[in-house]
Design a protein around this nucleic acid. Structure first.
Lengths: 211, 211
DNA sequence: TTGCCCGTGTGACAAATGTTACTGTGGCTA
DNA sequence: TAGCCACAGTAACATTTGTCACACGGGCAA
């Protein structure tokens, strides 16, 4: 078994052997550096990527360049939006930026379309991806629709900790503010209150989550 | 051609003849009255519905019973969420309420799953539905993340007018406030400002859109 | 007609959030 | 070491939104 096969099988354990083989013969491996923007709002989607390693964030851009975090993508996942844009010349509605160096497999739209019909395990992956992302987006809506900034910040920190698997969050207040579409001062203020309540411990460039 | 076949073919012109036939033989026609709640947050999804006539609204419920409008469903459409929940015992994340009396076809999950593989036109319908709803939800996120209440209200009114196909909106300020998750007073205040700007003309129980 | 409810309008105030301005501090580098 | 810069803290104020209180008028039913 080649190294690629091994990684693919491990990262996407539900894919059938035939599918893995098809992926290997038909698609290309690629790397991206932290900070790279893989997809930008308004660009045409020509392919999708399966993530083997690293982390991406998917966010919505406002008219004045505001960012708004939707969700993170990690190894074993794919971007729901690019999975579904189908054959039409579909413009991306979101931006994808690399958080940690990414290794990925690029798959053309035509192939995806074919696989949907021929590979049960691909079909299930797509449906699963779509469903979970839709749910995640619904949760995001809940947060901004029903909750105030303090709760949203708390939710954001927990989600971030979960995504990176540790309780130390290495983000500046400015970065957090961007993703929640608010201002640094507000984030500082609320974090200070959270610290008083014992929920976090604040350091320079690091927030230690204590819950 | 039976009456049902005729209606189905007209409402879902992209469905193949074989698919239409399958729908007819395997699923049941149902009616719902305005105000009925077809699906509620937390309920298990056992089937999906294709809408032949009338209008539904799909909204998210907050913990204290707040509503938050996601989108409307009309003839020729289906609920994206129920389309994708697949075989798992999936709980609904949204609530669906009838706005105008609805006639619909109910389809079990098992059938949907089968059709995805066997009927290209069903597959395309599902993908199309998912994509467009995802986009709509992204737009909703834009609105609450990046825009203030006055813009959101304007957007809401336009969307409502578009959905019902006329410029007279027969809603009380209270109802609008619920769907935007704000209070009646705020809606009144903003509508008054819009009237001063010449965007609307206010009547009792009716808002006349002038744009 | 009278009384009542609903929808609406509005002022006054409270609370949350955004903005401006300034301070301090740690670390890097010229 | 001095100067610079990014990050963080915070006070003061503006703006937006939510809340409370109350008034007005239309229409309906007793």
């Amino acid at each position: 078994m080649s190294e690629e096969t091994f990684i693919l099988k491990n990262t996407f354990p539900n894919f059938s052997n035939e599918l893995i083989q098809e992926i290997e013969t038909n698609s290309s491996f690629q790397s991206f550096k932290a900070g790279d923007v893989i997809m930008r709002t308004g660009q045409y989607i020509k392919s999708t990527i399966l993530i083997l390693k690293g982390q991406l964030k998917i966010y919505r851009e406002g008219e004045d360049g505001e960012e708004f975090l939707m969700y993170y993508l990690q190894a074993g996942q794919a971007c729901a939006i690019s999975l579904i844009c189908s054959t039409k010349d579909q413009k991306s509605q979101i931006t994808a930026k690399v958080v940690e160096d990414v290794e990925a497999v690029t798959i053309s739209l035509a192939l995806m379309d074919k696989w949907m019909m021929n590979h049960r395990s691909w079909y299930e992956f797509v449906i699963y991806t779509y469903r979970t992302r839709f749910e995640e987006v619904l949760e995001v809506i809940d947060n901004i629709a029903f909750r105030a900034m303090d709760e949203r910040l708390e939710f954001y920190l927990k989600r971030h900790a979960k995504a990176c698997g540790c309780k130390e969050i290495n983000l500046s207040h400015q970065e957090i503010a961007l993703e929640l579409n608010t201002s640094r001062e507000v984030v500082s203020r609320l974090l200070k209150k959270m610290e008083q309540r014992g929920l976090v411990h604040l350091h320079r460039n690091q927030i230690e989550l204590k819950i």
